[in-house]
Amino acid sequence: MTNAQASQNSNDNLRYERGLAKLQQIDGEGGVKVVESLAGIAPDFARLLIEFPFGDIYSRPGLDLRSREIAVVAALTAMGNAAPQLKVHIQGALNVGVTRNEVVEVIMQMAVYAGFPAALNGLTAAREVFTADDEKSAQPLAEPRALVETP
């Protein structure tokens, strides 16, 4: 391995680590599950998904995570064909401090630029995320298990 190759590997590892940390900060388990789901079919794509969007773009200093997630929710809503990704990023937006009302307003704003069908699909995705979040919050915490079972 040449010095240039070693330097490139080191840079790629830094991008990956920075990206993974940012992904976990935004999406928590959801983002990690997306990456894990790609391991069997396209592990290189999973690595790129961490390095470029999260390691390079999300880590830039120009916008805070809250603003970035608002922009992503708007873009995915406008696309109209990315419901799974939209749901992950709606949850990510909530995770970084965007309120439910703000999510709804951003999606409604897209009706002006992307049309009512795209906004309706976005609102459906938001309702599903909000409902799942409410259900998860309503579940009682599991009883702690004893570290040592008594006979």
Rank of each mutant, 00 (worst) to 15 (best):
M1Q: 12
Q5Y: 06
Q5K: 13
A6S: 15
A6E: 15
A6V: 14
S7T: 15
Q8P: 00
N11T: 12
N11M: 08
N11I: 09
D12K: 02
N13S: 15
N13I: 14
L14D: 15
L14W: 12
R15M: 07
R15A: 08
Y16I: 02
Y16V: 00
G19D: 11
A21M: 04
A21C: 03
K22L: 01
L23Y: 00
L23T: 12
Q24G: 06
Q24R: 15
D27G: 13
E29V: 10
G30E: 08
G30L: 13
V32W: 08
K33Q: 09
V35T: 07
V35P: 00
E36V: 09
S37G: 09
L38I: 09
G40S: 00
A42K: 04
F45V: 14
L48V: 13
L48M: 15
L49Q: 12
I50H: 09
I50R: 08
E51W: 02
F52N: 10
G55Y: 01
G55S: 05
D56T: 15
D56P: 06
R60V: 06
G62A: 05
G62R: 11
L63Y: 03
L63M: 11
E69W: 03
I70V: 13
A71N: 14
A71Y: 09
V72R: 01
V72K: 04
L76G: 05
L76M: 05
M79C: 05
M79W: 00
M79T: 00
G80P: 04
G80Y: 07
G80A: 03
G80Q: 06
N81A: 04
A83H: 05
P84L: 03
P84D: 01
V88F: 01
I90V: 03
I90K: 02
I90M: 00
G92L: 01
G92E: 09
G92A: 00
A93R: 05
N95W: 11
V96P: 10
V96G: 14
V96M: 01
G97Y: 11
T99L: 07
E102R: 07
V104K: 12
V104R: 14
V104Q: 14
V106M: 01
M108T: 07
M110R: 12
A111Y: 01
Y113K: 15
G115Y: 01
A119S: 03
L120T: 14
N121S: 13
G122D: 04
L123S: 11
T124D: 08
A126T: 05
A126S: 02
A126Y: 00
R127F: 07
V129I: 10
A132K: 10
D133R: 07
E135H: 07
K136A: 15
S137V: 10
L141N: 09
E143P: 10
E143W: 04
P144V: 02
R145K: 14
L147K: 12
V148C: 07
E149L: 11
T150P: 03
T150V: 11
P151S: 13
P151H: 15
P151M: 07
